[in-house]
Simulated assay, not measured.
Amino acid sequence: MVEEVTDFEVLEIALRELAIEKGLFTAEDHRRYTEFFEQLGPVPGSRLVAKAWCDPSYRQLALDDPIAACKEVGVDWLRPTGFGTPSDFTALHILEDTPTLHHVIVCTLCSCYPRPLLGNSPEWYRTPNYRRRIVRWPRQVLGEFGLHLPEGVEVRIEDSNSKHRFAVLPVRPAGTEDWSEDQLAEIATRDCLIGVALPTPGITANADRPVHPAAHPIDGGK
């Protein structure tokens, strides 16, 4: 059916078939789980940010107990699909930006990502180009995304892993003081919650990010 099957695809097929054979889940469970994650989007994350901007008590809840805060926007990290076994990805951290501190999330090992909150990760987030370079040259890489931060703003990179996931709570942009939560949620895009963009009035979609070779590749795969 395809010209080439990668080693990772062979491993996934073998592991999935073994898990079904051992009764850990059924083929129907796997189908429903896959369909669930394929239809996920960043709407819950956008709602969380907008609500935190409007409600100081909710903002504090998101920082202190993000798992509880997620339930208020329709995401239960313990049972994200509503069926099957609980998720073990329950160490979620909300990173609050300030006028002098900007967070960016990455997974340097693979592509760990808060999918129940932000949907499936974009392709560029999974590439070695982004994963290796954002920790070495964060300002240069952010510049490639069109984000140029003042020198007085500290850039802090947070590395996700299989047990710890992150989402960024950006600074609310000026001129939105009278906006509703619905209006604010529209500008709290996925890229803003990753940290490679800033919420901006009038911008309600992620820019098209073609994957291209690294300008400064890491020699020897390091």
Score class of each variant (00 low, 15 high):
31 R>A: 14
110 C>R: 08
88 D>F: 13
95 L>C: 07
51 K>S: 08
90 T>W: 00
217 P>Y: 11
209 R>S: 05
122 P>C: 09
113 Y>R: 04
36 F>E: 00
121 S>Q: 10
192 C>L: 07
84 G>P: 01
144 E>N: 09
30 H>S: 12
165 R>I: 15
184 L>N: 04
130 Y>I: 15
84 G>E: 01
95 L>P: 03
202 G>C: 13
206 N>L: 10
155 V>Y: 04
204 T>Q: 07
163 K>L: 07
191 D>E: 10
158 E>W: 14
9 E>D: 11
8 F>L: 09
210 P>L: 10
7 D>L: 14
100 T>C: 05
174 A>N: 01
219 D>C: 08
45 G>M: 06
45 G>Q: 02
128 P>L: 05
172 R>H: 06
31 R>Y: 11
65 D>N: 14
142 L>K: 09
19 A>F: 07
49 V>R: 00
86 P>K: 08
51 K>N: 05
114 P>F: 13
95 L>T: 12
99 P>E: 09
201 P>W: 08
163 K>Y: 07
27 A>N: 08
180 S>E: 04
147 L>R: 04
17 E>K: 12
100 T>W: 03
3 E>S: 14
106 V>E: 00
147 L>V: 13
115 R>C: 09
198 L>N: 01
86 P>M: 08
79 R>F: 07
197 A>W: 09
25 F>D: 00
193 L>A: 06
67 I>D: 00
204 T>P: 00
185 A>Y: 04
167 A>Q: 03
60 Q>W: 03
14 A>K: 07
1 M>K: 06
185 A>P: 01
57 S>Q: 13
77 W>C: 05
59 R>Y: 03
114 P>G: 09
70 C>V: 11
122 P>W: 05
108 T>L: 02
150 P>M: 13
4 E>F: 14
173 P>N: 06
132 R>K: 12
143 G>Q: 04
91 A>N: 12
200 T>N: 02
67 I>N: 07
117 L>W: 09
125 Y>W: 07
200 T>M: 05
142 L>P: 05
182 D>Y: 07
117 L>Q: 08
33 Y>P: 00
96 E>T: 14
12 E>R: 10
98 T>Q: 02
113 Y>T: 13
158 E>N: 08
32 R>D: 12
62 A>D: 01
10 V>Y: 02
55 D>P: 05
221 G>K: 05
57 S>W: 02
125 Y>Q: 06
3 E>C: 11
198 L>M: 13
175 G>S: 10
2 V>F: 00
152 G>F: 11
165 R>F: 12
66 P>M: 13
74 G>L: 02
14 A>S: 06
120 N>V: 14
89 F>S: 06
103 H>E: 04
124 W>Q: 07
155 V>N: 05
177 E>L: 08
52 A>D: 01
